[in-house]
Design a protein around this nucleic acid. Structure first.
Lengths: 133, 133
DNA sequence: GTTGACCTTCACATCGGTGTGATGGTTCAA
DNA sequence: TTGAACCATCACACCGATGTGAAGGTCAAC
């Protein structure tokens, strides 16, 4: 059970470190969002960098993006500065532009509503129970 | 089929004006997100203000919020300045604070990824096909 | 009065993300 | 060598949001 090579881990460790059920780590792999290598015994072998990537995936899922879209935008998000892009096909670029804009819309919507909630909370906190106590 | 009282409309018109299937307008009602009045004949009668509200609901759904949560935060978002809040129970306040924070997290995640996409697109556009043509 | 375009309710289906558990292989330590 | 703690695949179930359509009421126009 020992992790000989540092920077690599089994599914259980990645699960704990990301707070993600094993089931979902396998699901994300099935959807092509990650592809861990395999140890000789067939166990999945996750690279350290996948901790961040999984967090990113979950954040995007939580923000309403489906795996299909996440899969398309992930390659643009490789840690190192834009090295060499796998595919700059016009359709891919159009897709990215579209998704970028949709994300901006989501940000606007969320920001608007969050600010409204914050305002409400502030108003409530501003001693509005004066007529009750 | 004429709309006698302006500012009121049938489900079909609201559907067209918001780009929302009738099915979903009824679903949102069932979930307690809107409650249109009824005409004598049983038809749903939507107020003009629901055009905006439906847009808001759809935006939040698209941003990953479930109807259960949307239902809780909607009352804080009445057009007129915070008039009188229906319920300022401590649990409700805690819920709102929590959801506000979750929305901030989503905004952060979406912004980060959107910017990365934008950077990527810019880099691609910056004549990086130099080594190909 | 019949037709057409609305509306109603209701039910069943699909799809994506997720939960749960069965069945069995690998490895380490007692 | 057996048991515990991992791992694997696979299948079935659930839930929320959504699609689709059947069966029937209302109303305006012809």
């Amino acid at each position: 059970m020992a992790g000989y090579e540092v920077g690599h881990m089994l599914i259980g460790e990645l699960s704990e470190r990301t707070g993600t059920p094993r089931r979902l780590l396998r699901y994300y792999e099935e959807q092509g969002l990650i592809n861990p290598s395999r140890s000789p015994n067939g166990y999945r072998d996750y690279d350290e960098s996948l901790v961040d990537r999984v967090a990113q995936i979950r954040g995007l899922l939580d923000a309403g993006l489906p795996t299909r879209i996440i899969k398309q935008i992930l390659p643009c998000l490789n840690k190192p500065r834009v090295i060499h892009f796998p595919d700059a096909t016009p359709e891919m670029i159009a897709t990215l532009e579209h998704e970028r804009d949709r994300m901006s819309e989501r940000v606007a919507c969320l920001t608007r509503n969050r600010d409204a909630i914050a305002d409400y909370l502030e108003a409530v906190r501003a001693g509005d129970h004066a007529d009750q106590s």
